[in-house]
Design a protein around this nucleic acid. Sequence first.
DNA 1: TCAAATTTAGAACAAATGTTCTAAATTTGA
DNA 2: TCAAATTTAGAACATTTGTTCTAAATTTGA
Lengths: 193, 193
Amino acid sequence: MNTKNKILQVALALYNQEGIRSVTTRHIATTMGISAGNLHYHFKHTEDIILALFEQLTAAYDTIVQNLSEHPVLNLAELEAYIDSSFYLIEQYRFIFINFVELGSWIPSIRESYQKLVSKREQEFSRLFTNLVNANVFRSDIAPALLNSLVRQLFLISDFWISSNELTAQLRGEEALLIYRQDILSIFTPYLQ
Amino acid sequence: MNTKNKILQVALALYNQEGIRSVTTRHIATTMGISAGNLHYHFKHTEDIILALFEQLTAAYDTIVQNLSEHPVLNLAELEAYIDSSFYLIEQYRFIFINFVELGSWIPSIRESYQKLVSKREQEFSRLFTNLVNANVFRSDIAPALLNSLVRQLFLISDFWISSNELTAQLRGEEALLIYRQDILSIFTPYLQ
DNA sequence: TCAAATTTAGAACAAATGTTCTAAATTTGA
DNA sequence: TCAAATTTAGAACATTTGTTCTAAATTTGA
């Protein structure tokens, strides 16, 4: 692996573990055994590292979405599988979700990029939902206004469940996934066929 | 108003506007027209300022809860009024909610204090819910496990709606309140009598 | 093979930041 | 009223941090 990618890898691990507040470029450099000067040869500014990590996240999300359009969700088991894969992705880049607002105002292109991510997810969710209505998994009489609220709730839980968990139960790994999945599914529960 | 309180007032406004990343003690001092030395005479460490603001938040929340136990919620209009008051409080201390995880790991007593806040809210919600079931507003056949999920959802939306809004719609004031209220109420919608 | 391009280490710099120190100004209260 | 307590300003300090600079080491590719 080349130095540039290793910087991103170590930076991600440190940001996730220690939080963006306490991780510095020197910190990243010494952890991976290179000089700070070398790190800044590869990434001129700290923001460039964070932006690159954010772009990794959106790229990974694109892959999930592409998979989803090739293999549509048709039942609850497949819905759970999709929920799980989104959980793992969010957990992998947890520092981004934990500092989303701060990062968004610090690095404006992150906010812009997030807007695009949201609209991509909205389309994807709308398709997913139509499929599940057609497959007689969901009821077909849900008002559009209510559906909008459900979509917002779904995104809010997806993006901030990790933060909430960090402050309260601090569940990890499989245990966290179980509750996360349950919380997401409970949005749908009342609207099952 | 004495200097100590004015420091808290100015610090709150700055943290809310500029974010904790870019606000320094010097910044706070010059904004209110005093010296940095003077500020540090009143608050030895930056954490002391943030902790004091957090304690203001929990105190204000206690007042709401006390009001709630004196005047129980018995119908949807009263539920909305309660939702509104919690919204205003959260908006007033928005920087705390936006940086909750980061603050929790930086200042451990904030995390501990938040745990207490959560259990206080759990009790309060449970009482509120019982009242609304007894008043025939809510259905009485909701499984305890589902109720737990609903409580978690309620808290998650309460605490992170501001963050989510900041990244997407960026609604302000009355407009924000309307959507916030709708999102909270939509959790209950399927369980109305 | 060897010159050009690249990567790297480490010193150095400037700015920022939290905090302390000192001495003056102001307030308090007996 | 005046001595003691308090508040305040501003200089000063140590540390940190992001970043740049320089020169050496390494890699590349013709």
